[in-house]
Write a protein that binds this DNA or RNA. Sequence first.
DNA 1: GTCTATACCTTGATAGAC
DNA 2: GTCTATCAAGGTATAGAC
Lengths: 183, 183
Amino acid sequence: MSETKEKIVALAGQLVRKKGFNAFSYKDISDPLEIRNAAVHYHFPAKSDLGTEVIGCELEKFAENVEKWKGLPEDKQIMKLVEVFQKHNKNGMVCLMGSLAPDFETLSAPMQKKLQQMGNEMLDWLAEKLEKGRRKKLLRFEGHAYDRALLIMTNLQSSLLLSRVLGPSVFNRISERVLKDLK
Amino acid sequence: MSETKEKIVALAGQLVRKKGFNAFSYKDISDPLEIRNAAVHYHFPAKSDLGTEVIGCELEKFAENVEKWKGLPEDKQIMKLVEVFQKHNKNGMVCLMGSLAPDFETLSAPMQKKLQQMGNEMLDWLAEKLEKGRRKKLLRFEGHAYDRALLIMTNLQSSLLLSRVLGPSVFNRISERVLKDLK
DNA sequence: GTCTATACCTTGATAGAC
DNA sequence: GTCTATCAAGGTATAGAC
């Protein structure tokens, strides 16, 4: 992938997380990168192509992280996940799911599919860590691991949304409580 | 408020919850109601005015519900809240907070303020019910009631978002687990 | 209160030169 | 790969008649 193309995707990712997919335009990309509208269209003929790539990029990054965390105990791996969200919160960004899910019905079929894939992969990963962590007595919770994964993931996602509206401290209160509840 | 004006607000509310605030247009309102673009602008000069009214309407409805539920035990009142979200899920809608928070920075100041007010009122109400319910031994949970309110509210909000992407059963799994955890 | 008509802008997208 | 130039479409919003 060329350097320009990478810059476009990176900036688009930020814009999606800050303003939403339908609220940013090609101009928001071409102006800061000091290229023309048509140059962006050369790399991504349709906005939908750009959106799909942004989600794909996030999937790759998640896979890299998972690989990097592999040696850690399960409770620490989950803490690492929380830290990723914390970083987003610090930058005033919501996660991709939180940003794209409300507009889901306005998205192209490829974007919808990729978003589903992302959600499933993250939930499956978290459920597995929860289950293993519980077996090793590193974590404590009731019910199915997948249900617990749903709860934690929704806590993290919406904490970024609420933080934006009510102030960034909301995220810390939520993430601390989530981790305490697992002990 | 005139009949037409009420219809406009009601439809706008649905559109916000289904497509997002930035993704619907005055045409999406004037066409189904069989009036002209300008008629909508007569009632709401700017789109922001319409958005503010939609949130105000939600606040009123919440206040009515709270009043209606007043006689019930605290655990039942919280179940009523869950049922409100369940109804949204059935209609494929997300809640106002879930829809508007991602686009928060693109909203007008009055809309931002009203949205903050809505979030605060709902959280304060929920925290109070949790605290009272715990004192009466109707509910069981650890930590501050407000933190628990944050957890539950984020679970409900994001469950609607995730349901839209991964299928409506997600909401049921989450809401059941939330209620079980309180016992 | 609702209409017709329209101004004005931004958007995503394309054609063709370099 | 990037540019200039341009397009059609759709958006919000307004003016003025009825």
